[in-house]
Design a protein around this nucleic acid. Structure first.
Length: 179
DNA sequence: TCCACGATCGGCT
DNA sequence: GCCGATCGTGGAG
């Protein structure tokens, strides 16, 4: 499948979050490539109080202000990493959190949760800022099949703007995270 | 400097 | 359903 181009990420974050559902996250480790269908996402835009970029650019979130199509990885709860795709035009602090994958490769599991999929794919802070628009990168995203039915609901684990309906997942998919 | 808390998860009740 | 692990981050002082 073709790799998603930068233009795909440069659009409205909410749309990108919805359009990423059904696409395929690819991770190269050594000579193996692991693939998983994206089945759950959340959108975060700069004007959103729950967004890391809400209070402006800092050392942690500077990748969010970079080019669309970069990978933003952050550390949380003292032990977890989460993976995001940077969206909208360069200079805006927006991203889509990838919350769950359906494994498409052998020897690949534990992908139903944002921190679990990072652990399973060995995605750490080292990969912060990687370009998702090139299959030469350690991580990239390919086009997928357009999903049948998308469920829209509120985001998980935040207190600010907890009522924004910016979480999306594929209806009936067994790999969507719990809660 | 200091300190409260988090885009989580697994284990225990 | 609830709680603890565990530490980087940023806002307050």
């Amino acid at each position: 499948m073709p790799v998603l181009k930068r233009k795909f990420y440069s659009q409205n974050t909410i749309n990108v979050a919805r359009n990423l559902l059904g696409c395929v996250l690819c991770r190269r480790i050594g000579d193996k490539i692991y693939r998983g269908k994206i089945v759950e996402t959340e959108a975060y835009i700069q004007e959103d109080p729950a967004c890391h970029a809400f209070r402006g650019k800092t050392a942690r979130n500077e990748v969010m202000f970079g080019k669309p199509g970069l990978l933003y990885v952050y550390f949380t709860y003292g032990m977890h990493f989460c993976a995001n795709a940077v969206t909208e035009k360069e200079g805006r602090g927006c991203a889509v959190l990838i919350r769950a994958l359906e494994p498409l490769s052998e020897d690949f599991d534990n992908t139903n949760g944002p921190a679990r999929l990072c652990k399973s794919l060995n995605i750490t802070k080292d990969l912060n800022g990687v370009d998702l628009t090139s299959s030469k990168s350690p991580v990239w995203i390919e086009e997928g099949v357009k999903p049948d039915e998308i469920v829209t609901t509120v985001r998980i684990g935040i207190k600010q703007a907890a009522d924004y309906p910016w979480r999306f997942y594929l209806k009936g998919n067994g790999w969507v995270s719990k809660k």
